[in-house]
Nucleic acid binder design. Structure first.
Lengths: 258, 258
DNA sequence: ACCTGAACACCGTTCAAGT
DNA sequence: ACCTGAACACCGTTCAAGT
């Protein structure tokens, strides 16, 4: 008989077994803490997620939180992972037609998640740098990798190709938003922001920033989502140019080598 | 006559005028604070940069810091910008031959800076998400944009093309490193890390993570720098495929349209 | 103009103690 | 096993006061 739990917060993915049917509104679980964290982040932004705020929302003490969760950055990771998971599940890869569509679906899922949860961009970036092969990265990588394989990319290039796509994806989703954490920008706010930025760019020193000055108007008129998809297409073009796909009927499912 | 400085920390790029020749070792300036911040970050990692640590290194009070600097995140931005600036200056764009070489030079400059300053990856990511068009992004964008233009990309696509490249670049540099902040990983540490990660991947559920399992060995044997450059080439291939360059002598300098 | 440093209003985390 | 909540060791930032 092993003492399976003398130190807390270890069994990461496992809900504590419920003996009868417990009123879930009352029991404190890891899942409930994560849920509440996401609510707090959505409602009041990243700075509002403190253990004190959690304890008051959950009507417990800080010790209770730490019994379930380990520490704050673990909670942030779990919250990010949860949101990313549902974002990716929103577009199940099997549904779409071509591998290209699958990749676009994953990309748009992430993009929409970031606009729905303004705190997510910063957390994705943090997760990605602090824990490059943590659950969040792994999840995205897997979802991108499958269509990369189906695209007909040779096995030896799977890792490199998927990495490139994921890197672009993370870079792009991560820059996508200029609102502050609490108030998702309205369309008007956004236009105003782009307008002032664009004007500021035109005032830059012509010797230091000729290129920025040259694209100032383009940037004012650009649409983030569209630009995002164009970038994906550019990377996909690179992939299919370097690794021309084996001939196949359009819409047919490619199993990929091996 | 205008009172140019009733509120502090406003004249961002301007050194306070020195009347005679002041012993610079003694005067506290914005630049000296930034320098010290970088030293602190390099030596002890991101968590070690506190205003208390700064005051003791600089032998002042916290108020002195705030007279020059505004707040902590402004300091972080300035430190990041300073390091990025010298990283990009290490490979002046004019030196290299083709636009492709210029782009690679910028990319490698950033890559090397991130490995030399382990805290930089996280800060780049933060700067990029919190302040998408701040000085750091602008600087990189300009440096990438010039060769994009020289590549012969049509004017209408300058912004989109440069964005894609920058997004990939940031994503890739940002994931590049798994050491903790204080101890840059030795080659052996790195190999051990990749080895355990690779093994862990092989243990993943075959239903949930077939792709990750399939690339586990590739990832163990991969080299970050090489993978980084391969990604750049892939994106460049996408660019030149979508926008074939006008014919020109190899090595000849293209001014770009307009 | 520039700097001091005590004080304020927070943090995350721990841990003896309860049930 | 699970939770309480006071206490600890920090933070960034402010501001009256000095020169």
């Amino acid at each position: 008989m092993l003492d399976h739990c003398s130190k807390p917060a270890r069994m990461t993915g496992m809900a504590p077994r419920t003996r009868q049917s417990e009123r879930r509104r009352q029991v404190l679980t890891r899942e409930r803490i994560i849920e509440t964290a996401v609510e707090l982040l959505d409602a009041e932004g990243e700075d509002a997620l403190t253990v004190r705020a959690l304890t008051s929302r959950l009507a417990t003490g800080s010790g209770a939180i730490y019994w379930h969760i380990g520490n704050m950055s673990e909670l942030l990771e779990a919250a990010t992972d949860a949101v990313v998971a549902t974002a990716l599940d929103a577009h199940p890869a099997e549904t779409a037609g071509t591998p290209r569509d699958d990749i676009r679906a994953v990309a748009l899922g992430l993009f929409d998640a970031v606009t729905a949860h303004p705190w997510l961009a910063a957390q994705l970036a943090t997760q990605f740098t602090r824990n490059p092969w943590g659950p969040v990265t792994l999840r995205i990588f897997e979802r991108i990798g499958r269509p990369v394989r189906a695209l007909g990319v040779p096995r030896a290039d799977w890792f490199t190709t998927a990495s490139t796509l994921v890197h672009y994806l993370l870079g792009a989703t991560t820059q996508t938003r200029q609102s502050d954490d609490t108030a998702p920008a309205s369309a008007a706010d956004r236009a105003a922001f782009l307008d002032t930025a664009s004007s500021a760019w035109q005032e830059l020193d012509p010797d230091d920033y000729p290129f920025i000055r040259a694209i100032a108007e383009q940037m004012r008129d650009h649409d983030d989502r569209e630009q995002f998809l164009t970038g994906i297409d550019l990377v996909l073009t690179g992939i299919t140019t370097l690794h021309p796909a084996p001939a196949a009927e359009p819409g047919e499912r490619l199993p990929g080598p091996e």
